[in-house]
């Protein structure tokens, strides 16, 4: 029985049909790259006429491709580390102090999510061309740290909300210093939320294209920028191999985040 549609079988069928059209439309683009990627190296074809790893070989032997992948991984790892260093203490301070103006600061920290990326891309382009940071790895990393900290803040602040303040109070009464409390009591409880934030930040940085497109050039090009110009100008079949690799990586990260979130929910 299905209380949302009443007992009308027609209504149920119409809704089900429309829903499945959407499921297919949403799923197919994420999945179709996989069979294409094992096809012939000559052109994009589906279904592929023969099975081969030629596109992957092409990807890993072309320095322009795998070089930008290495660059992207480096940027994403550095970004994640720096963003954690900045966002975790800030989230802790926002949650556990009575400082006036906290609301304002929280708004400032969340702002990167609310400003259209193209506006940030242009602003940073103007700023970094003044500062000589265009086409440098440092420039992209700084921009990505700014873009990803909100996601770490959100995850860590919700973790702090679920963690037990009483434990901190007890530790404080027992004479533990602020530093000891943070490292021995707070951080261990926050582990999963920090990991969720870190994975999210890593994925965001790895996938980010608009700001990176404004800030990078031939010396510091990241994988999404390389993919963007390739889709735009040549549409090479290697894209299918890159896409498959990226999708598998995103899925692994998504599964990791879901597993960690289950864990935090089970704890609280």
């Amino acid at each position: 029985m299905n209380p949302l549609f009443g007992s009308s079988a027609i209504a149920r069928r119409v809704v089900t049909a429309a829903a499945w059209v959407c499921y297919v439309f949403l799923l197919v683009p994420s999945l179709i790259v996989v069979p294409i990627s094992f096809g012939n190296a000559g052109q994009i074809e589906f279904p592929p006429r023969e099975f081969s790893l030629a596109l992957y070989r092409q990807f890993f032997t072309d320095p322009a491709w795998w070089g930008s992948m290495v660059q992207s991984l480096f940027v994403a790892v550095t970004t994640t580390a720096l963003a954690l260093l900045l966002a975790v203490p800030a989230a802790y301070a926002l949650a556990r102090s009575n400082l006036p103006g906290r609301g304002l600061l929280r708004g400032l920290f969340m702002m990167p999510m609310l400003v259209p990326v193209i506006v940030l891309g242009l602003g940073l382009y103007l700023q970094f061309s003044d500062w000589g940071l265009l086409d440098t790895t440092l420039g992209v990393v700084l921009a990505h740290v700014m873009l990803t900290t909100p996601y770490i803040m959100i995850s860590v602040m919700s973790g702090l909300q679920h963690s037990d303040v009483a434990l901190e109070t007890v530790a404080s009464i027992m004479g533990a210093s602020r530093r000891t409390i943070f490292f021995r009591v707070v951080l261990p409880q926050l582990g999963p939320s920090i990991a969720v934030g870190a994975l999210f930040a890593f994925l965001m940085s790895l996938d980010e294209v608009v700001v990176a497109y404004f800030l990078t050039g031939t010396d510091s090009m990241t994988l999404p920028v390389k993919m963007y110009s390739s889709i735009r100008w040549e549409l090479t079949p290697v894209l299918a191999a890159v896409s498959t690799l990226l999708t598998v990586l995103s899925l692994l990260i998504a599964l990791g985040i879901i597993a960690l979130q289950r864990k935090t929910e089970a704890q609280s």
Binding site: S30, I32, V33, Y228, L246, T247, A254
Partner: peptide, 13 residues
């Protein structure tokens, strides 16, 4: 969770 570039490429395909 899929990159917008992957989706764009796939939609063209």
């Amino acid at each position: 969770w899929t990159s917008i570039l992957v989706k764009s490429f796939a939609l063209v395909a």
